[in-house]
Design a protein around this nucleic acid. Structure first.
Length: 340
DNA sequence: AAAATAAACAACCGCCGTGAG
DNA sequence: GCTCACGGCGGTTGTTTATTT
């Protein structure tokens, strides 16, 4: 039988989202929380498919996500994790709580793949084709099993592999001074380093419930993945203002796409930033900071540029805990219990 | 200065797994 | 136990901007 499309093709708008649509979506999520995407188009009047709404939220509007300017550390992690996990971007993203799978995937396809290919074979999975070929069937590649036991074993395998990847990545990084170009660089790109969070348990690899893009995890009050709102809305408005101002330049600010959200903006500071929208200066503080009641602002976010290091050291702790003799049998539990 | 090309990123598409009825 | 709808995921495409010629 043929499954009907998730939404009618007719009357469904496609293409780039407008600021107005974003606002509507954000407002809706503020009120109802992420989830039940099916109902979003009808309830909000958005002429968008539910899937599109979900993607827009998870990849762009969701608070706490960092965009652009991947740090060396992140890059290394991605390379290693990709080598171990294959193109399981969601699983990889679960180790980079602030990054979306789509973002990581794009970064891989546009930067890393080429970089590794150009860098000449060897090394880490040698990227590109070689890497893909070699790992096209990563150990963790899941068979379509769904028994809980199997799922847990798989998860554990992922955790184990991720640990190894992290260890390798961090070890190699120790060889050079930590110069997260983006920390600075990112010009605040590292703001709101949500050190992580629910998904940060790492146990998330491949866990439907722990995926970085999982609505469930997003809702979790304990999820520090959300850096909240004022900042994001501020960024959003900032971006819109720029767009509307005709300033255009998608990357004028460094990397920020049409996306309002580019972290590179003034968001370097977690303080409410004043943005000009439609000619009117408006304080982000005025945004409904408490609107996302189910979200909590990670304390690390205030750490500002120290965010990455904080996050990394947390990962390191978790990572090296393994070396301290946690039996593999309890690895999962350890990972589950670990809080960043 | 204009045209061509490359790069970056947002969004869409289709498949799959899961849970509810 | 079966069917169906929903949501998640990975691959791919389209659009916009930057850079080069």
């Amino acid at each position: 039988m043929v499954r009907p499309p998730c939404c009618d093709k007719d009357g469904v708008k496609k293409g780039p989202w407008t600021p107005e649509e974003d606002l509507v979506l954000v407002s809706y999520v503020q009120e109802h929380g992420p989830g039940n995407w099916r109902a979003v188009p009808t309830r909000t009047g958005l002429m968008r498919c539910s899937k599109s709404c979900r993607l827009r939220w998870t990849n762009y509007l969701r608070p706490g996500i960092k965009r652009g300017n991947f740090t060396d550390q992140e890059e290394k992690l991605i390379v290693h994790l990709q080598a171990l996990l294959g193109n399981r971007w969601a699983a990889i993203a679960s180790y980079l709580p602030e990054r979306t799978d789509n973002d990581i995937k794009n970064y891989w396809n546009t930067h890393l793949k080429r970089k590794l290919q150009g860098g000449g074979g060897g090394g880490d999975g040698d990227g590109g084709a070689a890497g893909d070929a070699v790992y096209s069937k990563p150990a963790a590649q899941r068979p379509a099993s769904s028994s809980k036991g199997q799922w847990e074993r798989r998860l554990q395998t992922d955790i184990d592999m991720a640990r190894r990847a992290l260890r390798e990545a961090l070890t190699s990084l120790d060889d050079k001074p930590h110069q997260p170009d983006a920390a600075a660089g990112g010009g605040g790109a590292t703001t709101g380093a949500a050190a992580s969070a629910g998904t940060g348990t790492g146990a998330g690899a491949d866990s439907p419930a722990a995926s970085s893009t999982s609505g469930a995890s997003q809702c979790s009050p304990s999820s520090a993945g959300y850096v909240l709102t004022t900042e994001n809305i501020s960024r959003m408005l900032d971006g819109w203002a720029r767009k509307k101002g005709g300033g255009g330049g998608r990357r004028a600010a460094g990397s920020g796409p049409a996306t309002p959200g580019v972290t590179e903006s003034a968001s370097g500071s977690s303080e409410a930033s004043e943005v000009s929208y439609g000619g009117t200066a408006l304080s982000a503080a005025a945004a409904p900071a408490s609107a996302f009641e189910y979200e909590t602002k990670p304390t690390v976010a205030a750490a500002g540029d120290a965010g990455d290091e904080t996050q990394l050291s947390a990962i390191e702790s978790w990572l090296f805990a393994d070396a301290d003799g946690i039996e593999s049998g309890s690895l999962l539990d350890a990972a589950m219990d670990y809080t960043f």
